[in-house]
């Protein structure tokens, strides 16, 4: 049934032009899969199931992100992780996880339609985000492999460095996505 309708990103109505001057590039990464995984990281059943499906156990170190089998696994809490998958993969991965976790105290929730991703990259990416973000984004403090949940322009977000370290990846609730993108575009004018 859902095939009858065309997918539409929450940011479909916002024009994203080329970055001007020294302003960072702002891009949307639409239609990725987002799964929320909860469970006890020390539990043997949970460890075995995640190892089987994801190839790794979810990170236990706070505010870290790892990548395995093309899935990025973000630490959200001591018993909570966010899995970001390629577009369209989330349902298969969710089904695999749920069957592997059968009988284990855990939950897997598909949140793909609830989240959106924005990439901010370029020389002034950190300066642009720091305009209204309380986190220290200096490379000395915020390193590859780290992630953090904090606020950007009052909207809750999960931030991490892009794998190539040229900028930042921001995961935001879709209801905040257009607000945040417009805010980023506005704040970027200062760097043009």
């Amino acid at each position: 049934m859902s095939d009858l309708f065309e997918r539409e990103s929450p940011l479909v109505e916002i024009k994203l032009g080329e970055a001007k001057g020294n302003a960072p590039a702002i891009e949307e990464k639409p239609f990725l899969g987002y799964l929320n995984l909860r469970g006890k990281s020390g539990h043997t059943g949970f460890q075995a199931a995640t190892l089987k499906v994801l190839g790794v156990e979810p990170p236990t170190e706070a505010n870290t992100v790892i990548e395995s089998n093309d899935i990025r696994i973000y630490w959200l809490g001591p018993d909570e992780w966010l899995l970001v998958t390629a577009a369209g993969q989330q349902q298969a991965i969710k089904a695999e996880l749920m069957s592997a976790l059968d009988g284990v105290f855990s939950s897997v929730v598909d949140n793909s339609s609830g989240l959106a991703m924005i990439h901010v990259s370029g020389a002034n990416a950190a300066a642009l985000i720091a305009t209204d973000c309380p986190l220290d984004l200096h490379p000395r403090e915020f390193k590859p492999g780290q992630c953090a949940q904090t606020r950007l322009a009052k909207a809750g977000m999960t931030i991490s460095l892009l794998p190539d370290e040229t900028g930042f990846e921001i995961i935001i609730r879709r209801s905040f996505a257009d607000y945040l993108l417009l805010w980023l575009q506005d704040a970027a004018i200062a760097f043009e």
Partner: peptide
């Protein structure tokens, strides 16, 4: 205790 030092506006 989990995330380290953060701004008070997060709490």
């Amino acid at each position: 205790p989990w995330c380290g030092e953060r701004d008070e506006s997060e709490f």
